[in-house]
Each structure stands twice: as C-alpha cells, then as structure tokens.
C-alpha cells in the first residue's frame, strides 16, 4: 500500500470532521467532530512516518493524542458547567455575549 492512499483517506476524514463542526449545533457532537479531525491528522502523520522511514511522525502522533485527551477533559468540564446553568448543550443557546 502506498502512503498516498492513507493520506487521501486522512484528507477525506478531516474534511468530514470540518463540515461536521460547521453544521452541527450540539456542543458534544462538535467536540466529537474535532476529535475526528485530530484522528485524521494522526493518520497522515503515521503515513508520512512510514513514507520517510522516520519514527518522529509516530512520536508526534502520540503527542497529539495526549494533547487531545487534555483538551477533551477541559472541554467537557466547560460543557458541564454551561449545561448546569442553562440546561442545554446547544451552541445556539450560549449567546449571552451577543446582547
């Protein structure tokens, strides 16, 4: 398998995740789409690591996973705090700064 196929798959998954972030209204689903984008980038990193025969790409993918885990923890805690005060997880309802 040439690495190009894996990179193409990563591109498709990344675009799907980006469209999901733009289209969906539920903050949880938006988070999941962000995770999908991070995963797609990881796939590209691994493909490039194999293409160049260099392990650095895999190490970077590992770091991306760690940062993504930290991001999810803080993001979900913020979501819980918002849900507690507004009883809603929709991004449309958190618009208090607009007025």
């Amino acid at each position: 398998m040439s690495p190009g196929n894996f990179v193409a798959l990563a591109v498709i998954l990344f675009v799907i995740g980006a469209v999901g972030v733009l289209v969906r209204r539920n903050a949880m689903v938006i988070f999941m789409c962000v995770e999908l984008m991070l995963n797609a980038v990881n796939l590209a990193f691994v493909a490039f690591a194999r293409m160049h025969g260099n392990l650095s790409g895999q190490v970077i993918a590992f770091f991306v996973m760690v940062v993504a885990a930290a991001e999810v923890v803080v993001g979900l805690a913020i979501l819980m705090a918002i849900f507690r005060t507004r009883r809603s997880a929709s991004v449309d309802d958190a618009s208090l700064l607009k007025y």
């Binding site: 040439s2 690495p3 190009g4 591109v11 675009v15 293409m51």
Partner: peptide, 16 residues
Amino acid sequence: LSLTVGHAVLGTAAQA
C-alpha cells in the same frame, strides 16, 4: 487539500 497533497511528491514507502 487534494491539490496540495497531489502536488506533493508522495513516494512509495521507505524500506521498513
């Protein structure tokens, strides 16, 4: 993204 990736030289996998 496809254009960027297509323009990049994606070689075959290096010898494992």
